[in-house]
Amino acid sequence: MADELLEVTDLTMRFGGLRAVDALSFVARRGEITAVIGPNGAGKTTVFNCITGFYRPTGGGVLLTHADGARFALQRLPGHRIARRARVARTFQNIRLFAGMTVLENLLVAQHNTLMAATGFGILAVLGLSRYPVAERQAIERAREWLDAIGLTERADDPAGALPYGAQRRLEIARAMCIDPVLLCLDEPAAGLNPRESDELNRLLLRIRADGCSILLIEHDMGVVMRISDHIIVLDHGRKISDGTPEQVRADPHVIAAYLGEGDEDEVPAEEVVA
């Protein structure tokens, strides 16, 4: 069960003189929730952007292996292929929904590639001569399942931008799940949620894991991280300072030092960070 899904080797990302990520290596295993934590500016989102194709890493590799053995070198794939072929989905730190489209439409856009295949290059569907209506019904059905899962069925026909914050977070996760991913990357999904919403989120993530999708998670909310993660990687200044189970990480003196900000020998001077 717990074989290697994502292998990050010597990943490096430089912005000018700043090494945002420095020779980072870690492994995320199939069927697990792997959390990436670290103080602000540790390079967590940069790692995500490298994995999901928004940045082209300066060096190193990201290898994803499907259960059927298919392998993808993510650092070389364009962003949309990573989602489509390698089936890696993601959410964003600042929620990026299609605000002017309804909740349901958001979930249908996520199934674009499946639906597009059913339209016969578009032309047949314009003329009404394809199996598109069937495909669309299936897509709506799938969307409805996710709406039930995140408790937004009632609001399916409301514009996504009009939803409350917590609901937008959940919708973004559901939308990412609609591309049928093997790996779901969540960038601070609990940010700005109240305790009740955090609990709901935990349940949703555990359910997603139970359904067979692995999760890579950036999070500041230690309550969420410690409760649901199987494996934690701690970053500071672009480097890995700890790697292990929640218990191991919690006890690691490096982690405590990084979070409390003392005795860190490779602390970067302030000017360099600003640059």
């Binding site: 928004f54 962003g79 292929r81 489509r84 489209m101 674009h112």
Partner: peptide, 12 residues
Amino acid sequence: EDEVACRSLGIN
């Protein structure tokens, strides 16, 4: 609405 989100959903 959002080009970045489109890319993350596998839309070319």
